[in-house]
Design a protein around this nucleic acid. Sequence first.
DNA 1: TCAACCGTACTATAGGTATAATACAGTTAA
DNA 2: TTAACTGTATTATACCTATAGTACGGTTGA
Lengths: 122, 122
Amino acid sequence: MVSFGGLILGPGVPIYLQIIRYLKRAMVAGEVRDGDEMPSRRVLSSLLGVNPNTIQRAYRLLEEERLICSRAGAKSYVTLSEAQLTQIRRQLLEDDARTLVEAMKQMGVEKQEALHLIEELW
Amino acid sequence: MVSFGGLILGPGVPIYLQIIRYLKRAMVAGEVRDGDEMPSRRVLSSLLGVNPNTIQRAYRLLEEERLICSRAGAKSYVTLSEAQLTQIRRQLLEDDARTLVEAMKQMGVEKQEALHLIEELW
DNA sequence: TCAACCGTACTATAGGTATAATACAGTTAA
DNA sequence: TTAACTGTATTATACCTATAGTACGGTTGA
């Protein structure tokens, strides 16, 4: 069963996108694998303290990305191929790194200082 | 006159927050200094292609942070002390770096790989 | 069988963001 | 002086996000 115990919702980003992002990162980390069962909409909404409709929205988008599979009445489960995993990992890593690099460059921070900052913050 | 020529608006983040973030980063970069004139609400709204009310919202928040000063009828200008600049720089750098570190850790990426990723993306 | 789940769908409400269209008074420079 | 520009305020509309409540039928296991 996929666990969302480590997900802490924050402000600024839509909840349904935070759920999707959390699941994808867990996939990249190897904590979520192909075939894993997803918690039901109602269970996860209760666990996170958000509306079931919000969970449904996240699940619907994940379904459209072919990352989970749902059928009426039965539990949903993860459908994750190696190709999908590779693509997700590459995209998430590159997006996060690129965001930081752009921010640092806009602020005129030198590469060396940026690397040192990350190193000591790790 | 403060220039917003390098600001490209993107999706996902409220426009008024993107404007504030851009100005703060330009301050950290030394491109915006204390006493600099701000473009008028109407001029900037035309330049960025957004509603004047959206610009006003950004300016009002900047005014509340004491980063700009406005009086009815006259142009607005930047009010930036050294203490403010130091605090802004520290906060922006730490927030950006912390965001990346948290993301990488959630994905199980090693520090060495993260640093190498940023280095080659620079 | 059948009760307890499950996914799915729908309407209604509320707040935040952004736009559109005005309006008014203060400042500034020709 | 006065025309042009400035900051500021208001009302209305629209979309997105999130909540609340309800409902229907399919799946599953005791």
